[in-house]
Design a protein around this nucleic acid. Structure first.
Length: 658
DNA sequence: GCGATCAGAT
DNA sequence: CACATCTGATCGC
């Protein structure tokens, strides 16, 4: 649960995901997604007054979030001021805001703010698979990640306990096969998905419905009225075999063999109900590795399911971004801020810089940019023209350097070499690291294995033991008596592409999935007017023009933007392969300890093509160094040592024409 | 009486 | 086992 106060150190005149107290003086509001813990104060009359009292103060969010917000009577009166299109906000300050898909729930986005106080990423809540950040072109300038000053990070599962959480596809497939095997027994066999009242399960509903041809019964669906891709897979007709309806006492209902909607029999025949409860923490607490589906009772199951990135996914994300600073938005259950910082800081430049005394001599040659962004100026920021006194980077200037250029390259030097002594490292990232951190072929071999073993994380590999027997995903004979051996193997068939975050009414934009758009939606908060239509045009084409390292990157970005699990996209065979490949890589790297994987990973080995490594390297290299010239030789430590020695002695260094 | 806040349940 | 929400009690305006 978010405990973010609403304001960024760098841009305190903006408020994000908090709308109460001090935030009432903000000059622009941002909502990352429609979960209550990110909407504090959003209903209050104080905010309403604030928004209505100024033509300039607006609330910004993704189109889907706007739709979900405004179809909720609790909020719809408040916000005539909800904007998904850019409007000039500040007369004197240019801040460019980019929306990136967060993969958390429909409409969820991360916000990237670029302005004179540096580039700052606020993640909101997110779930991004390993490597996904590296494939987001809007996080990059050319082939390198943007220079990011600070990341405000979703740290919900920033705890080694949650080192590995099975991927979206794995979880989905587990549930799918369980539901398939049960519902195929007879029309009276029904499933109750015991989901929390919150957005985020829609892709599960969609996939079940698509695969099985059974719509999901829900209490309400009017909020999806403009999202046909969701709408067509849910129903308010109780006569269906999959239910995700709720009732205040729904557990009691279930115990009484009654669905929350009241259904208990059909044509006089009593229903056979099983419940499946999506959970993450429950799995995180298992000491022994488990299947993604665990039977917990006669007719109750737990299914692994996560809205948030696992610890290793968080680390991959952060390592790729490599910001100067990181600030946790969430305290993991039972965790402390200190603990989280201890885990995360090694992945940041501010830490790495301090960790390399051996390069001090060189370091002194470099310009160190210290910026005091502390709270010192907080007080005056809200009231008066917070920006008037500040040096301004002209808009032109910025535009010349391209829409994705950061305004602050200076910190880039900060992290040169260091070797990343970082902790419990995982798998393939270490490959990257060893390549990146050439100066020091690390005596310190990745210790992921020890880490991995002492935790529970091998659960996935164990899945291999459990799952296959259960027909890939809980469909096993052993699981329930009526079932006679559903033996089909799990497979992804025509997984449908887009997550239903499409809003048809936004037709003028003609886009497909929301996520894609939200990703395209770069909002310029600028003194220069630009009309909305023009803008959205610009941003779409604009971002397409940003050079992308690999075509596949773009593809999977689109995919990802619809916050659907990668690999499920019908759009790109190549895309899928790419994802599978990276999975295989992970698998290898984790040396068999991990990863279960049913299906998806069992793709032909052909997919494990060598080019992948190249791709990954270039995309995820952590960028503050100049990328290695192809064919260049990595300098060896002793060689380097020599060079440094000479340098320190003031001798000139002659380059050998290798 | 409304809203904010907290504890507790689900 | 807890990802987010709703309910009810309490307090202040």
């Amino acid at each position: 649960m978010s405990r973010f106060g609403g304001r960024l150190r760098e841009y305190p005149a903006l408020s994000i995901d908090r709308f109460d107290r001090d935030n009432l003086r903000a000059r622009a509001y941002f909502l990352s997604h429609c979960h209550k813990d990110h909407m504090k104060g959003l209903r209050a009359s104080a905010l309403k007054r604030r928004l209505e009292g100024s033509l300039k103060v607006k609330l910004y969010c993704s189109p889907v979030t706007k739709e979900l917000l405004l179809t909720n009577w609790k909020y719809n009166s408040t916000h005539c001021s909800v904007k998904i299109t850019p409007t000039p906000l500040f007369q004197k300050e240019d801040i460019e805001v980019t929306l990136l898909p967060a993969g958390h729930c429909p409409g969820s986005v991360m916000f990237l703010f670029q302005g004179e106080n540096g580039t700052v990423l606020y993640t909101g809540d997110f779930r991004l698979a390993k490597g996904e950040a590296a494939r987001m072109e809007l996080l990059h300038s050319g082939t390198r990640v943007k220079d990011i000053q600070s990341v405000y990070l979703d740290t919900t599962f920033c705890d080694p306990k949650f080192y590995h959480i099975p991927s979206r596809e794995e979880c989905l497939n587990g549930i799918l096969e369980l539901v398939r095997s049960w519902t195929s027994l007879s029309r009276y066999h029904v499933v109750w998905l015991n989901c929390k009242a919150a957005y985020g399960y829609e892709y599960l509903f969609i996939n079940l419905s698509e695969e099985l041809g059974i719509k999901v019964h829900v209490n309400k669906l009017d909020m999806f009225r403009n999202m046909p891709e969701i709408l067509c897979h849910v129903t308010t007709d109780r006569h269906t075999q999959i239910h995700a309806c709720r009732h205040p006492r729904d557990d009691d209902c279930f115990r009484g063999n009654r669905l929350p909607c009241g259904m208990t029999c059909q044509n006089g025949t009593p229903l056979r109900i099983i419940s499946i409860k999506p959970s993450t923490m429950w799995f995180g607490e298992r000491i022994k590795k488990t299947n993604v589906i665990v039977r917990t009772g006669e007719s109750t199951y737990r299914a692994c399911f996560s809205f948030h990135s696992s610890f290793s996914e968080i680390k991959d994300f952060l390592r790729h971004i490599c910001p100067v600073n990181v600030y946790p938005n969430v305290l993991p259950v039972g965790g402390t801020e200190d603990k989280v910082m201890e885990l995360l800081q090694p992945l940041c430049r501010s830490y790495r810089r301090n960790q390399e005394p051996r390069y001090k001599p060189l370091g002194t040659l470099k310009r160190v940019h210290k910026r005091d962004l502390s709270d010192t100026d907080e007080d005056d920021l809200f009231d008066t023209e917070l920006t008037s006194a500040r040096p301004k980077i002209s808009k032109q200037q910025r535009e010349e350097s391209g829409p994705s250029e950061t305004t602050q390259p200076e910190n880039a030097e900060g992290n040169e070499s260091n070797d990343d002594d970082d902790d419990d490292d995982d798998d393939e990232e270490d490959k990257e690291d060893t390549e990146k951190n050439t100066q020091e072929p690390k005596a310190d071999v990745p210790r992921w294995d020890t880490f991995f073993k002492c935790d529970r994380l091998d659960e996935s590999s164990e899945n291999e033991d459990n799952f296959p027997s259960s027909a890939g995903a809980g469909g096993s004979q052993s699981l329930f008596s009526d079932s006679d051996g559903v033996s089909d193997s799990t497979h992804i068939s025509s997984q449908n592409s887009s997550q239903s975050t499409h809003i048809s009414e936004q037709g003028s934009q003609g886009w497909g999935s929301q996520g894609w758009d939200s990703q395209m939606d770069t909002v310029l908060i600028t003194s220069q007017e630009r009309n909305a239509a023009e803008f959205s045009c610009f941003s779409r084409t604009g971002s397409r023009m940003i050079p992308v390292p690999h075509e596949a990157a773009k593809e999977s970005q689109a995919d990802n933007s619809s916050w659907k699990a990668p690999g499920q996209n019908r759009s790109g065979a190549s895309d899928v392969i790419c994802d599978l490949k990276s999975k295989d890589l992970e698998k290898e790297a984790e040396a068999g300890t991990a990863h279960v994987q049913e299906v998806l990973v069992e793709t032909p080995d052909a997919s494990r093509a060598p080019d992948l490594e190249l791709k990954r390297d270039s995309q995820s290299s952590s960028d503050f160094e100049i990328p290695l010239t192809p064919d260049a030789e990595l300098p060896q430590p002793d060689k380097l040592y020599c060079l440094y020695k000479k340098l320190a002695a003031g001798e000139s260094i002659v380059r050998k024409p290798s």
